[in-house]
Nucleic acid binder design. Structure first.
Lengths: 206, 206
DNA sequence: CGAACAAATTGCGTGGCGCGCATCTTTGCG
DNA sequence: CGCAAAGATGCGCGCCACGCAATTTGTTCG
């Protein structure tokens, strides 16, 4: 049952998360006060901390949500599919561009990208982003354990797989953001990264 | 040249880092104020923030130093050694027990372990730990790039290797800490984890 | 329907933190 | 010895996370 209560809560959370990201990309991390975020989301400052225990956590929340979806996506891949193929697909599914950004006028879009880059570079945020990734990784490990019939408590295998997969995505995204001009499409980079990991990252011929 | 200046600075940094860890393991994260750490290190509270920009960073500093040593160790492995063998050795070298802990009376040792476990579980610290790991991972990637003659700017390979290696160590350590009673020796777990990663983490036979 | 219950929001107050700035002390070097 | 650079310290400010208690808003039953 989806009561009004739950829905409103989800909406407030989303509004706060979005406002936090939006304002930060726009003005920079420490030109945004919690008060501003709360106001933009139409809620009292005190309420902010009922949803997030820090400014950084709010900003990382969308990253967390997206990352968690990878685990969910893996669970929905057909059982017959080989593990690494399923992981690759599950990861790729998360990289369709969202509507908020898609429906953004072109001049603003350039500034948006710049702002997001600055945001990702902000040291004060990296820890929280990584923490979110770690939470999602745990979820992914659980999904891998289910799929492969291994045991989280006794086998390192599912956690190793989850960690390697997360690393593949992270490296691909980083490569995408770093390479300036017309970068290779993110889909190709992710596929490539997963391919290398699944191949055991053999030393390239000198 | 190692002037008095540099040495004192290194000493102060070490003293602050150690005091931060020690007090936190003893009393718990938020029963330790910055003032306490500074006092334990024999330095003014204001000086604390000349060395670390947050309490969490101070606590994670030793983790950072240790992790950075892995990259240095890799650079010192013989050039002929296969990459993954060299990585495994470099990682293993970091896990010889330090003297401060070794020379600790047995009754205190038990409490120490408990305190450290609680410290590692503290959410407010995980982000900073992960951030330290990320910094070290970057350094490791650079070392891998050198050794394999690949290019950080154009190839995902060195970063993928560094990330996979870091993940292997992290998973092994976690497994070691999680499994209670008489756990498998950490050396075996690390070797095993590296072996699986280098083999491409093949799906186990159902 | 409406009354009792539960859950969320809000305002207020507090302790602590991160850091800029100005000042004083120590170190390195000629 | 004396000076310039680097570090340590004291002070003060703005902000943040959170506990508590009062209030508003949804939910559930008689």
């Amino acid at each position: 049952m989806t009561g009004l209560r739950e829905r409103k809560k989800a909406e407030t959370r989303a509004a706060l998360g979005w406002a936090a990201i939006h304002l930060t990309a726009e003005r920079g991390y420490d030109n945004v006060r919690v008060e501003d975020i709360a106001e933009a989301a139409g809620v009292s400052p005190r309420t902010f901390n009922n949803y997030f225990s820090s400014k950084a956590e709010a900003i990382a929340s969308r990253h967390l949500d997206r990352s968690l979806r990878t685990a969910a996506a893996l669970r929905e891949r057909p059982a017959g599919e080989p593990l690494w193929a399923a992981l690759t697909r599950a990861a790729l599914e998360q990289f369709t561009r969202g509507p908020e950004v898609e429906a953004m006028p072109s001049p603003a879009h350039a500034q948006w990208v710049t702002g997001v880059r600055a945001m990702l570079a902000e040291p004060a945020l990296q820890g929280e982003r990584l923490r979110a990734a770690a939470v999602a990784e745990a979820e992914l490990a659980a999904a891998v354990a289910e799929r492969t019939g291994t045991d989280l408590a006794t086998d390192m295998y599912p956690r190793l797989v989850a960690a390697a997969a997360s690393a593949a995505v992270a490296v691909a995204v980083r490569h995408y953001l770093d390479s300036a001009d017309p970068p290779a499409p993110i889909e190709r980079l992710i596929t490539d990264a997963f391919g290398q990991v699944a191949a055991g990252l053999p030393e390239p011929p000198g």
